[in-house]
Design a protein around this nucleic acid. Structure first.
Lengths: 110, 110
DNA sequence: TTAGTATGTTCAATAAATTGGACACGAACT
DNA sequence: AGTTCGTGTCCAATTTATTGAACATACTAA
């Protein structure tokens, strides 16, 4: 079966933006594409498609590259990241483990 | 050649966090995993691995799923996203188009 | 200007993700 | 209680991304 997908504009814009942020970050740090690719453990070809904002590359790789050039996805450091993680774990235990018909609104900051 | 990769903690934490945010968002909206998967045009299996914070899934798909359940990656709407995009385009034209490799120091502060 | 690199971009071979199916288990509803 | 449905998780077949090589172009420093 063919795997044809569509991506919303938000997604495309977000990816395009991320790619540009990575490119700017890389250039500002004086790294060549090859250097950054080596550091992230990927090929220059893949980095190229990431900087182009392609939808295909693996999340892990994209996040890694972003981290290397100082682009923080959640605008916070690792400590804060871990903290939010822990907090969400709590929250997840409070939510119903299985969605039946219609669960509703809980609200939380962040 | 086998593709063995390593992921920094920041990346792992970010992915873990994102997965949890997606799961919380989905649950709060009363969607089943299958519903969200259908909506994103992916299989439940893939959504599962996204919610688990796997590094493998495609960025595009992960971003799409996030968007559907209301998780904003850059903490802003599509308008702002497009604006930042345009701004970065300007910035990119100002930066040198090519980086000279000079064995320069890069600080990995993450 | 020229030599030496960095980048844009393509492509076939290879490695890996995605898929639907399957199953057990647990939670929610009557 | 029993039953239905959502989830956790594994799998082989299929679809896809990744890679390294290759090349042209474009930029930077001498």
């Amino acid at each position: 079966m063919k795997r044809k997908r569509s991506y919303s504009r938000v997604t495309q814009h977000a990816l395009s933006l991320l790619g540009k942020l990575i490119r700017v970050g890389r250039t500002e740090r004086g790294m060549t594409a090859q250097e950054l690719a080596d550091r992230a453990g990927i090929s220059r070809t893949t980095l190229y498609s990431i900087e182009r904002g392609s939808t295909g590359p693996e999340v892990g790789v994209v996040f890694e590259v972003a981290a290397i050039v100082g682009v923080r996805l959640f605008q916070c450091d690792e400590r804060t990241l871990a903290m939010h993680n822990a907090h969400l774990d709590e929250k997840l235990t409070l939510l119903p483990q299985s969605v039946r018909s219609s669960g509703k609104e809980v609200d939380d900051d962040f």
